[in-house]
Design a protein around this nucleic acid. Structure first.
Lengths: 156, 156
DNA sequence: ATGGGGCTTCCCATGATGGGAAGGTCAACC
DNA sequence: GGTTGACCTTCCCATCATGGGAAGCCCCAT
């Protein structure tokens, strides 16, 4: 199978497959004499696995770990579950953070008449310091905590 | 005020202030004879405003819009409210997406015993195609929909 | 006048992804 | 057998907001 076919079959672009190879997420593919990469069904399975994990918001480094566990038939399920639960916890944290933002902003918007007049609590609040009461230093400065979300799941 | 003091007063790093200037989010600062940027209290207000908006997850281009409206004393509050509501809607969409991920993954984890034995539904599911039933092509391919979240709010 | 800290610009890196150029290859069709 | 078009290769660049760091200038206090 060529890289294009593997891409179509796995749902990962050819570009990304090469990238995954370059960063060591997957081993270097076999090559034809002409230098074309070739993929087996098994390789495609791995790629699909990776795509699904990414769809769950699992960051690359964790995916790498999972792929390793997946290919090791004897790993204890404990390890896999631990990774999944950690991912769930991080998703929950991110959701809580976004929810706090959303609620605060929705409250502000609610207080704004939204008519032709210029006075608007949204702007005065953003300018002032009332806002800080709404999120009392929750996520802020929680160094490096976030999932790697850059809006991935959503545009592949 | 020097850039360092403006940074401390606004909560935006000096590095970022220069960046904001370079991309036109704020106008070029005044300079001393030696080339040092100087900032007024009013400038710092603007920077604080920007920081707050970013804390709400508002992407840069929208912040730029808001700053413009904020400085225009005669804008109708309608415009501001519209932007805020759009932001709320996008936050809700993102939250829904993450929640779907989280629920699906939590369900999988729940089904995994997590003991010393190797069988684990998490991995078999990631490998198989059952997953697709859980998110029936929702966010996928919704081109460019996501907020720009790269985990900002959280590490400033 | 010297030292340390602040300022300047410029370059590089991140992470995952896409775009595109320049060039080689394969398969099908005439 | 030759042409064509679709595919492959590598390499470079851009994104977005942010941080790191180097080289060099500046200011203030001792």
């Amino acid at each position: 199978m060529n890289i294009g076919q593997a891409a179509a079959a796995s749902g990962i672009t050819a570009k990304m497959i090469r990238y995954y190879e370059s960063v060591g997420l997957i081993p270097p593919a076999e090559r034809t004499e002409a230098g074309y990469r070739t993929y087996s069904e098994r390789d495609v399975d791995t790629l699909r696995f990776i795509r699904r994990a990414r769809d769950f918001g699992v960051p690359m480094d964790r995916v790498k770990l999972l792929v390793g566990l997946w290919q090791d038939k004897d790993r204890p399920s404990r390890e896999v579950k631990a990774i999944a639960l950690r991912q769930v916890a991080e998703l929950e944290a991110k959701i809580a953070e976004l929810t706090a933002m959303k609620d605060a902003l929705a409250a502000l918007a609610h207080a704004c008449r939204g008519d032709g007049r210029p006075d608007c609590p949204i702007l005065t609040d953003l300018a002032g310091s009332l806002t800080s009461a709404l999120h009392p230093e929750p996520a802020r400065r929680s160094g490096k905590a976030g999932l790697g979300f850059a809006g991935h799941a959503g545009q592949r």
